[in-house]
Write a protein that binds this DNA or RNA. Sequence first.
DNA 1: GTTTGACCAAAAAAACGATTTCGGTCATAC
DNA 2: GTATGACCGAAATCGTTTTTTTGGTCAAAC
Lengths: 232, 232
Amino acid sequence: MSNSETKEQRREKRILDAASELIVRFGYDKTTVREIADAAGVSKGAIYLHFDSKRELFEGLLLREFRLVSRAWLDSVEADKEAGSLGSMYRAILSAQHESELMMAIYRQDPKVLGSYLHAEDNIFERAYSQSVHVRFVEQMQAAGVIRQDIDAQVISHVMDIVDYGFVSIGELKEPEQIPSHEETIELIGQMLDRALTPAEGVDREKGRAVIRRLIDEYDEILAQLMGQGDE
Amino acid sequence: MSNSETKEQRREKRILDAASELIVRFGYDKTTVREIADAAGVSKGAIYLHFDSKRELFEGLLLREFRLVSRAWLDSVEADKEAGSLGSMYRAILSAQHESELMMAIYRQDPKVLGSYLHAEDNIFERAYSQSVHVRFVEQMQAAGVIRQDIDAQVISHVMDIVDYGFVSIGELKEPEQIPSHEETIELIGQMLDRALTPAEGVDREKGRAVIRRLIDEYDEILAQLMGQGDE
DNA sequence: GTTTGACCAAAAAAACGATTTCGGTCATAC
DNA sequence: GTATGACCGAAATCGTTTTTTTGGTCAAAC
């Protein structure tokens, strides 16, 4: 096996790219399979060679996005030699999320984009949220000495969720011109976390990065599992 | 004039109380004037002796709530001798907001509660937001030496908006059992703000409280103005 | 072996009138 | 003077039928 993609993989990528753009723009319900096929330059039948249904196509798209964003997060943490503090890692994940309009819509559970899928039974979000990855992230960071251990992990994780949810959702509330650059915003958020949650005795940055690597591995497994479930 | 309310004032209060409970529960659109009258124990006609329309009744309710919450905020700041730091004041306002279900719905711009009023033209929110009270709050706090002056007030204010919006909206995303007590949550948020935004040289708490007093006065004026506009 | 697009049943949307509900008014009662 | 609720027109809701759209299939074409 070489690293070049097969013809099929390239076509699947084109389909998902087309679906992503259309769904972000018009929403899941208002985007038809026909339109996705046209935008991807394939026939409608071809889509069903890759996915069993519109729903599974969408779930494939969601899973790809989860993976892409977590990969981007990991890369940015690995690339930054200064990284390892809680703030720098949180900044990295906010940045990674912010790059993807689809990911933003997912995190804020935007009904305009996710449409009827949002309330479809047994959807991927229910399954994904039942794993409490955020709490585990904080617990492992505490164990690694990157986060103060005198505050309950549940509470820390919840405040981080609040900030994250506010960050991706604030665009629904404010006009674009009232919003400062997201670099400045993210910078300040990172500072706040660092100053409030870093232990007094300082941190071993490499340990923090090690936690991220381990967590992303875990996360990939969860995604693979979700992928598997979808196939049945 | 004595401090006892007139009969009319008492009736207006009963009407607003009834409206508040029904609207929080069933939403603006699904609550009828008839139901409000019944719940308040008055006739429908009586309602129109106090308000020119259903819309103005609702705006009266909104303005009363703004005033009540800002008053509760001020009281809690005045009562707490330790208050004056940014964190303690922010904690107080989150608490005050959290006490009022209606205020929570307003801050998260909940369509289930605010219904068609949310997109009604020239609604009170548009007018209220055009005044950038949050930015002015931060600027005055910086001038009083309670907040670091080396960070742009716009950015600080925006991050505080993000936290606030996330705080009142997170209930839409998570199940109640996944949410820690709001006391713990608020406590940590306050710590984060204090540690990240307090100047190194420490603060004069009384100066901070003085800013609050001045701001609430300003705010009352803005509300009075909005009230006036509504009457035309 | 691949790919396509005409085709189908099911679901959604539109059309439409009948019916009910609702915000607001005002003649009447107190 | 104050308060009420029957009353009105506008608007929303409902029930039903018709029309259009859409997800998914598969015989035919390549």
